[in-house]
């Protein structure tokens, strides 16, 4: 890959990582805000003399909410940690479904803003691909972000994985009306180079679906 494309790819990666971290920190901040209000409410209830004996269900509900949001926070940290380790080696074998789940979790905040729902239709065999996980996530992120920006509110985006002979097919299927929206895309020449380096193939119909074919390799 020549220096200009390399540079362009790095810039897109930096932007991608920035977006993921922004979404992550926003989500964590929300969980902390809920935990903060819930513990504060327990303190307030005690101060006004609401006894644990008389108001046990209310206290238990709040405690359950705190536990639930600590678990969600933990889950989100797990996703970010796995995401960060995708960059450890340029090529590796990994479960494509897990990689997509991670992206969906880290992108959910942006989708929620427009009430766009992700639907998952994964191959139950948990296909393993041999590829560059960080670059692949960048490509899929860019298509997902494009759809989030360009689809009307309350649309859906389906992510589908299927195993064919020697490859895994990832299909991104938008369902909703298109609106005017500016989004960042990977220049087609760069996309062609990158996907060839991954040993894969992309076919894209903006209105319908994007299909990414990747080489299948056992772990």
């Amino acid at each position: 890959m020549d220096a200009q494309y390399e540079n362009e790819l790095r810039n897109l990666q930096m932007r991608f990582i920035g977006k993921i971290i922004a979404g992550f920190t926003h989500e964590i901040k929300n969980y902390i805000a809920i935990i903060n209000e819930s513990t504060g409410l327990i303190g307030d209830m005690m101060k006004v003399g609401k006894s644990v004996e008389n108001d046990l269900p209310a206290y238990l509900d709040i405690i359950h909410s705190i536990e639930d949001h600590i678990e969600k926070t933990n889950g989100h940290f797990r996703y970010l940690n796995r995401f960060a380790h995708r960059m450890d080696s340029p090529l590796s074998s990994f479960h494509i479904n897990e990689s997509l789940e991670e992206l969906i979790a880290l992108l959910k905040r942006f989708a929620n803003q427009k009430r766009i729902v992700f639907k998952q239709d994964y191959d139950t065999d948990k296909p393993t691909v041999y590829s560059n996980p960080a670059i692949l996530q960048l490509i899929i992120f860019t298509f997902l972000e494009q759809n989030i920006m360009e689809l009307e509110q309350e649309s859906t985006i389906t992510l589908q994985t299927t195993v064919t002979d020697q490859s895994v097919r990832v299909t991104i299927i938008p369902n909703g009306k298109r609106i005017e929206g500016s989004s960042v895309s990977i220049p087609s020449e760069l996309l062609d180079i990158v996907i060839k380096e991954l040993g894969g193939n992309i076919s894209q119909d903006r209105e319908k679906e994007t299909i990414i074919l990747l080489p299948l390799r056992p772990l």
């Binding site: 929300n30 805000a33 809920i34 209000e37 819930s38 409410l41 709040i62 909410s65």
Partner: peptide, 11 residues
């Protein structure tokens, strides 16, 4: 965030 809103509203 309904849980945030309901806890803060109650406070």
């Amino acid at each position: 965030e309904k849980e945030f809103a309901s806890a803060l509203a109650e406070r």
